[in-house]
Amino acid sequence: MKGKEWYQADEVAQEYDSKRFSKGGRLIDRREKEAVLAALGPVEDKNILEIACGTGRFTVMLAQEGANVVGLDISRAMMVQGREKARRAGVADRIEFLRGDAARLPFPDDHFDAVFAMRFFHLADTPAKFLAEMARVSKGQVFFDTFNDGSLRVAYNWLLPMGSRLYSEGDVRRLLGDAGLDLAGANHDFVIPFGFYRKVPNGIAQPFRSLDLAVGDSPVGDDLASVSYWDARAESADEASRAATRASDAE
């Protein structure tokens, strides 16, 4: 299966967290959550939209930090897992899960304090439309990650069952400009791609992560990183709406 079909399968949703965020994948989970909190925080009483919320890893975390969160996803099966996770965490009253299309968000302009998407743009078939819509409904902040085309990710990308879109920094900057977004900050990480960590026990993953961080802190670290986290700021609603039109015409 590829893309949307793969992502929406019941069996994929049921095993998503256990396959990706157990063993060495716990390192990935922790780092991604740190990246989201560092970019969005403090989040107490903020209204936040998560695009492609999946099983609610970040949605629930932000609700636990006091945010009011809307989680939007195309997969009913993923959101079933998210709702159960929110119920167990005691934060279901702070989260609304919606099934919807990220290219046509059902919200007015400037509706959320922040909008973010993690593990989404590598699957995005129309990234310009998605980013323009994120900018439109945000009062200011848009945060997302990408997988990078100059990294070891290329070596195993063809093995992934859902396919994967890779980006250069130039690609991201063009998308931001077309969406009416200004880049406020960027962080780059994981010279060793995610797939390796998911396959090995946590005890084995830890030394490799130390090596990964050492290379990442070197002068070539940013160039070799397989993942980048992009923190951007939206222009006015009128400018964002015009950017959305430009993105729609370009696709």
Score class of each variant (00 low, 15 high):
residue 67 A to D: 07
residue 28 I to Y: 04
residue 210 S to T: 15
residue 112 F to H: 04
residue 23 K to P: 00
residue 88 R to K: 01
residue 177 G to M: 08
residue 247 A to T: 05
residue 53 C to M: 07
residue 121 F to Q: 08
residue 249 D to M: 03
residue 11 E to I: 12
residue 69 V to M: 07
residue 108 P to A: 12
residue 65 E to C: 14
residue 80 V to R: 15
residue 242 R to I: 09
residue 82 G to M: 10
residue 172 V to T: 09
residue 225 A to F: 06
residue 106 P to I: 11
residue 237 A to W: 00
residue 96 E to R: 13
residue 145 D to M: 03
residue 229 Y to H: 13
residue 205 A to M: 07
residue 241 S to T: 03
residue 126 T to D: 11
residue 240 A to S: 13
residue 167 Y to L: 06
residue 38 A to G: 10
residue 26 R to G: 12
residue 50 E to F: 06
residue 31 R to A: 10
residue 50 E to M: 04
residue 66 G to M: 07
residue 225 A to R: 06
residue 72 L to Y: 03
residue 166 L to I: 02
residue 94 R to Q: 08
residue 78 M to H: 15
residue 73 D to Y: 09
residue 32 E to G: 13
residue 139 K to R: 15
residue 163 G to P: 07
residue 83 R to S: 11
residue 237 A to K: 01
residue 27 L to S: 13
residue 96 E to P: 03
residue 154 V to P: 05
residue 25 G to H: 02
residue 72 L to I: 12
residue 213 L to V: 15
residue 157 N to G: 11
residue 51 I to G: 07
residue 18 S to D: 13
residue 12 V to H: 09
residue 219 P to G: 06
residue 234 A to D: 02
residue 169 E to P: 09
residue 134 M to S: 13
residue 207 P to C: 14
residue 65 E to F: 10
residue 126 T to F: 03
residue 46 K to H: 08
residue 214 A to P: 09
residue 118 M to Y: 00
residue 190 F to T: 02
residue 140 G to E: 09
residue 76 R to L: 13
residue 46 K to F: 02
residue 228 S to M: 08
residue 109 D to C: 09
residue 128 A to R: 05
residue 175 L to W: 01
